[in-house]
Protein backbone atom coordinates (compact mmCIF):
# COMPACT_ATOMS: atom_id res chain seq x y z
CA UNK A 1 0.00 0.00 0.00
CA UNK A 2 1.33 3.42 -0.91
CA UNK A 3 -0.10 6.92 -0.77
CA UNK A 4 -1.18 6.90 -4.45
CA UNK A 5 -3.05 3.65 -4.04
CA UNK A 6 -4.76 4.80 -0.83
CA UNK A 7 -5.67 8.17 -2.35
CA UNK A 8 -6.99 6.32 -5.42
CA UNK A 9 -9.23 4.07 -3.32
CA UNK A 10 -10.48 7.03 -1.27
CA UNK A 11 -11.19 8.97 -4.47
CA UNK A 12 -13.13 5.98 -5.84
CA UNK A 13 -15.15 5.74 -2.65
CA UNK A 14 -15.83 9.49 -2.64
CA UNK A 15 -17.06 9.33 -6.26
CA UNK A 16 -19.51 6.52 -5.49
CA UNK A 17 -20.74 8.24 -2.30
CA UNK A 18 -21.21 11.59 -4.11
CA UNK A 19 -23.47 9.90 -6.66
CA UNK A 20 -25.41 7.88 -4.11
CA UNK A 21 -25.95 10.89 -1.82
CA UNK A 22 -26.96 13.11 -4.74
CA UNK A 23 -29.66 10.64 -5.80
CA UNK A 24 -30.78 10.00 -2.21
CA UNK A 25 -31.02 13.66 -1.18
CA UNK A 26 -32.64 14.97 -4.37
CA UNK A 27 -34.81 11.83 -4.63
CA UNK A 28 -33.95 11.94 -8.32
CA UNK A 29 -31.54 10.26 -10.69
CA UNK A 30 -32.09 12.73 -13.54
CA UNK A 31 -29.01 13.00 -15.73
CA UNK A 32 -27.54 9.75 -14.41
CA UNK A 33 -26.95 6.83 -16.73
CA UNK A 34 -28.46 3.73 -15.14
CA UNK A 35 -26.68 1.69 -17.80
CA UNK A 36 -23.26 2.87 -16.61
CA UNK A 37 -24.22 2.04 -13.02
CA UNK A 38 -25.35 -1.48 -13.98
CA UNK A 39 -22.03 -1.96 -15.78
CA UNK A 40 -20.11 -0.82 -12.67
CA UNK A 41 -22.13 -3.25 -10.51
CA UNK A 42 -21.19 -5.97 -13.01
CA UNK A 43 -17.53 -4.86 -12.82
CA UNK A 44 -17.45 -5.21 -9.02
CA UNK A 45 -19.37 -8.50 -9.07
CA UNK A 46 -17.08 -10.22 -11.56
CA UNK A 47 -13.87 -8.81 -10.05
CA UNK A 48 -14.57 -9.52 -6.39
CA UNK A 49 -15.53 -13.20 -6.73
CA UNK A 50 -12.16 -13.86 -5.07
CA UNK A 51 -13.83 -12.74 -1.82
CA UNK A 52 -14.86 -16.39 -1.63
CA UNK A 53 -11.50 -17.92 -2.57
CA UNK A 54 -8.62 -15.89 -1.09
CA UNK A 55 -8.14 -13.66 1.91
CA UNK A 56 -5.76 -10.73 1.31
CA UNK A 57 -6.36 -8.27 4.16
CA UNK A 58 -9.15 -6.80 6.26
CA UNK A 59 -8.84 -3.57 4.24
CA UNK A 60 -9.18 -5.48 0.98
CA UNK A 61 -12.23 -7.45 2.14
CA UNK A 62 -14.02 -4.48 3.70
CA UNK A 63 -13.47 -2.23 0.65
CA UNK A 64 -14.69 -4.93 -1.74
CA UNK A 65 -17.87 -5.48 0.28
CA UNK A 66 -18.46 -1.71 0.54
CA UNK A 67 -17.98 -1.15 -3.21
CA UNK A 68 -20.32 -4.05 -4.01
CA UNK A 69 -23.00 -2.85 -1.59
CA UNK A 70 -22.83 0.79 -2.73
CA UNK A 71 -22.95 -0.12 -6.43
CA UNK A 72 -26.04 -2.30 -5.93
CA UNK A 73 -27.65 0.39 -3.77
CA UNK A 74 -27.09 2.91 -6.60
CA UNK A 75 -28.67 0.59 -9.18
CA UNK A 76 -31.59 -0.02 -6.78
CA UNK A 77 -32.20 3.72 -6.33
CA UNK A 78 -32.14 4.36 -10.09
CA UNK A 79 -34.27 1.44 -11.30
CA UNK A 80 -36.57 0.87 -8.33
CA UNK A 81 -36.92 3.59 -5.72
CA UNK A 82 -36.59 6.69 -7.91
CA UNK A 83 -37.32 5.14 -11.29
CA UNK A 84 -39.89 7.86 -12.07
CA UNK A 85 -37.03 10.35 -12.39
CA UNK A 86 -34.87 8.03 -14.50
CA UNK A 87 -34.19 9.61 -17.88
CA UNK A 88 -34.42 6.44 -19.98
CA UNK A 89 -35.01 8.41 -23.18
CA UNK A 90 -31.51 9.84 -23.06
CA UNK A 91 -29.83 6.74 -21.60
CA UNK A 92 -29.68 4.87 -24.87
CA UNK A 93 -26.05 3.81 -25.29
CA UNK A 94 -25.99 0.28 -26.74
CA UNK A 95 -24.12 -1.62 -24.03
CA UNK A 96 -23.78 -4.72 -26.21
CA UNK A 97 -21.25 -2.72 -28.25
CA UNK A 98 -19.11 -2.67 -25.10
CA UNK A 99 -19.95 -6.10 -23.69
CA UNK A 100 -19.33 -8.19 -26.81
CA UNK A 101 -15.77 -6.93 -27.53
CA UNK A 102 -14.93 -6.97 -23.80
CA UNK A 103 -16.10 -10.59 -23.43
CA UNK A 104 -14.13 -11.57 -26.54
CA UNK A 105 -10.96 -9.81 -25.37
CA UNK A 106 -11.11 -11.32 -21.89
CA UNK A 107 -11.10 -14.81 -23.42
CA UNK A 108 -8.16 -13.93 -25.67
CA UNK A 109 -5.96 -11.95 -23.30
CA UNK A 110 -5.81 -13.20 -19.69
CA UNK A 111 -3.33 -14.50 -17.15
CA UNK A 112 -4.88 -17.98 -16.98
CA UNK A 113 -7.72 -19.66 -18.84
CA UNK A 114 -9.78 -20.27 -15.72
CA UNK A 115 -13.28 -18.92 -14.93
CA UNK A 116 -12.07 -16.60 -12.14
CA UNK A 117 -9.20 -15.16 -14.17
CA UNK A 118 -11.36 -14.62 -17.26
CA UNK A 119 -14.02 -12.89 -15.14
CA UNK A 120 -11.34 -10.74 -13.46
CA UNK A 121 -9.96 -9.73 -16.86
CA UNK A 122 -13.50 -9.06 -18.10
CA UNK A 123 -14.06 -6.75 -15.11
CA UNK A 124 -10.84 -4.81 -15.77
CA UNK A 125 -11.64 -4.34 -19.47
CA UNK A 126 -15.29 -3.50 -18.76
CA UNK A 127 -14.37 -0.92 -16.10
CA UNK A 128 -12.26 0.96 -18.63
CA UNK A 129 -15.33 1.60 -20.82
CA UNK A 130 -18.23 1.42 -18.33
CA UNK A 131 -18.50 5.21 -18.07
CA UNK A 132 -19.23 5.58 -21.80
CA UNK A 133 -23.05 5.43 -21.47
CA UNK A 134 -22.80 8.30 -18.93
CA UNK A 135 -20.52 10.39 -21.14
CA UNK A 136 -22.79 9.61 -24.12
CA UNK A 137 -25.80 10.80 -22.14
CA UNK A 138 -24.08 14.09 -21.26
CA UNK A 139 -23.16 14.61 -24.91
CA UNK A 140 -26.74 13.82 -25.96
CA UNK A 141 -28.44 16.16 -23.50
CA UNK A 142 -25.63 18.73 -23.75
CA UNK A 143 -25.41 19.30 -20.02
CA UNK A 144 -24.46 17.84 -16.67
CA UNK A 145 -25.30 19.07 -13.18
CA UNK A 146 -22.31 20.21 -11.15
CA UNK A 147 -22.69 17.34 -8.67
CA UNK A 148 -22.56 14.85 -11.56
CA UNK A 149 -19.35 16.46 -12.79
CA UNK A 150 -17.83 16.13 -9.28
CA UNK A 151 -18.71 12.43 -9.42
CA UNK A 152 -16.97 12.06 -12.79
CA UNK A 153 -13.97 14.03 -11.58
CA UNK A 154 -13.34 11.74 -8.60
CA UNK A 155 -14.01 8.64 -10.70
CA UNK A 156 -11.42 9.75 -13.25
CA UNK A 157 -8.99 10.85 -10.55
CA UNK A 158 -9.17 7.38 -8.98
CA UNK A 159 -7.75 5.61 -12.04
CA UNK A 160 -5.18 8.37 -12.65
CA UNK A 161 -3.93 7.87 -9.06
CA UNK A 162 -3.74 4.13 -9.72
CA UNK A 163 -1.38 4.87 -12.61
CA UNK A 164 0.89 6.71 -10.16
CA UNK A 165 0.54 3.68 -7.83
CA UNK A 166 1.64 1.34 -10.65
CA UNK A 167 4.66 3.51 -11.47
CA UNK A 168 5.53 3.54 -7.76
CA UNK A 169 5.10 -0.23 -7.39
CA UNK A 170 7.18 -0.91 -10.48
CA UNK A 171 10.07 1.15 -9.10
CA UNK A 172 9.86 -0.06 -5.49
CA UNK A 173 8.70 -3.69 -5.87
CA UNK A 174 9.36 -4.47 -9.52
CA UNK A 175 5.65 -5.36 -9.64
CA UNK A 176 3.51 -4.70 -12.67
CA UNK A 177 0.20 -5.99 -13.91
CA UNK A 178 0.08 -5.51 -17.64
CA UNK A 179 -3.67 -6.00 -18.12
CA UNK A 180 -4.55 -3.57 -15.31
CA UNK A 181 -2.02 -0.97 -16.44
CA UNK A 182 -3.00 -0.91 -20.13
CA UNK A 183 -6.73 -0.85 -19.30
CA UNK A 184 -6.18 1.76 -16.58
CA UNK A 185 -4.38 4.07 -18.99
CA UNK A 186 -7.15 3.62 -21.60
CA UNK A 187 -9.75 4.31 -18.90
CA UNK A 188 -7.98 7.49 -17.79
CA UNK A 189 -7.71 8.74 -21.38
CA UNK A 190 -11.53 8.63 -21.64
CA UNK A 191 -11.68 11.17 -18.81
CA UNK A 192 -9.11 13.60 -20.25
CA UNK A 193 -11.62 15.52 -22.37
CA UNK A 194 -13.92 15.70 -19.36
CA UNK A 195 -11.08 16.85 -17.04
CA UNK A 196 -10.32 19.63 -19.50
CA UNK A 197 -13.94 20.83 -19.52
CA UNK A 198 -14.19 20.49 -15.72
CA UNK A 199 -11.14 22.70 -15.16
CA UNK A 200 -11.75 25.28 -17.88
CA UNK A 201 -15.53 25.68 -17.73
CA UNK A 202 -16.13 25.11 -14.05
CA UNK A 203 -18.50 22.70 -12.45
CA UNK A 204 -21.54 22.83 -14.63
CA UNK A 205 -20.78 21.40 -18.02
CA UNK A 206 -22.55 22.22 -21.23
CA UNK A 207 -21.16 20.65 -24.32
CA UNK A 208 -21.10 22.79 -27.45
CA UNK A 209 -24.12 21.94 -29.60
Amino acid sequence: MNIFRLAGDVSHLVAILILLMKIWRSKSCAGISGRSQVLFALVFTTRYLDLFTVYISAYNTVMKVVFLALSYATVYLIYMRFRNSYDSENDTFRVEFLLIPVIGLSFLENYAFTPLEILWTFSIFLESVAIMPQLFMITKTGEAESITTHYLFFLGLYRALYIANWVWRYHTEGFYDQIAIVSGVVQTIFYCDFFYLYVTRGEEIRTPS
Partner: peptide, 10 residues
Protein backbone atom coordinates in the same frame (compact mmCIF):
# COMPACT_ATOMS: atom_id res chain seq x y z
CA UNK B 1 3.96 -11.35 -6.79
CA UNK B 2 2.23 -13.68 -9.21
CA UNK B 3 -0.61 -12.46 -11.29
CA UNK B 4 -3.11 -15.24 -10.73
CA UNK B 5 -5.75 -14.85 -8.02
CA UNK B 6 -5.08 -13.09 -4.77
CA UNK B 7 -4.76 -9.71 -6.41
CA UNK B 8 -4.32 -7.08 -3.74
CA UNK B 9 -5.58 -4.09 -5.74
CA UNK B 10 -9.22 -3.11 -5.90
Amino acid sequence: SDNESGKDEL
